[in-house]
């Protein structure tokens, strides 16, 4: 339980809480990027360099920016004063708290959690590449297919339908 871990965990959780609690949607996304960056730093701290950098590249660079674009295209000029939470917010937060209680209980009481840190090196890029090209080549191809389908699907779904024949 090092100081680095505590700081990074605090940043990550502060970012995610702010994401879900803020009124302005753009502020939410900016807080979200903070949370994602904190998660990436946690990955780096765990020695998973490739995953941490991919996390920043994909989430901060693509997902957050995409969300911002959609917010810009859908937001109304006048800010509403009504609640940002839906009518069944109480039930929702109760369920979430319950889930956390169960998960926390399971984690604390589990025997695997008290495992000591094995002394080992980080995940270098070359073994990851080798694994992607040999053992995980089928999932990789399926992933490529999925991403292509998602690309085409997103364009088709979001594209403006042409009115008339102009």
């Amino acid at each position: 339980m090092t100081a680095t871990f505590l700081i990074l965990a605090a940043i990550t959780i502060a970012g995610t809480v702010a994401t879900m609690a803020m009124r302005n949607l753009v502020h939410c996304v900016l807080a979200l990027t903070l949370g994602f960056a904190g998660l990436a730093a946690l990955y780096l701290q765990l020695g998973a360099q490739f995953v941490g950098l991919t996390q920043i590249l994909v989430y901060v660079g693509a997902v957050a920016i995409l969300a911002v674009f959609v917010i810009m295209m859908t937001q109304k000029p006048a800010q509403t004063t009504e609640s940002i939470f839906s009518s069944f917010w109480l039930a929702g937060s109760l369920i979430a708290a319950l889930v956390f209680a169960v998960l926390g209980w399971a984690i604390v009481s589990s025997s695997t959690s008290s495992r000591p840190l094995p002394p080992q090196a980080e995940a270098a890029v070359r073994p990851i590449g080798d694994a992607l090209m040999h053992r995980f080549v089928l999932p990789l191809e399926i992933m490529g297919l999925l991403l292509t389908a998602a690309l085409i699907g997103a364009v088709v779904v979001a594209m403006q339908e042409k009115r008339g024949t102009a």
Partner: peptide
């Protein structure tokens, strides 16, 4: 141990996400 720490952070993020989605 610090594995517990990571798992607890992860559980907390999951619950925050769930709360937000709900």
């Amino acid at each position: 141990s610090s594995l517990t720490g990571y798992l607890l952070v992860s559980a907390l993020i999951f619950s925050i996400g769930l709360a937000g989605a709900l």
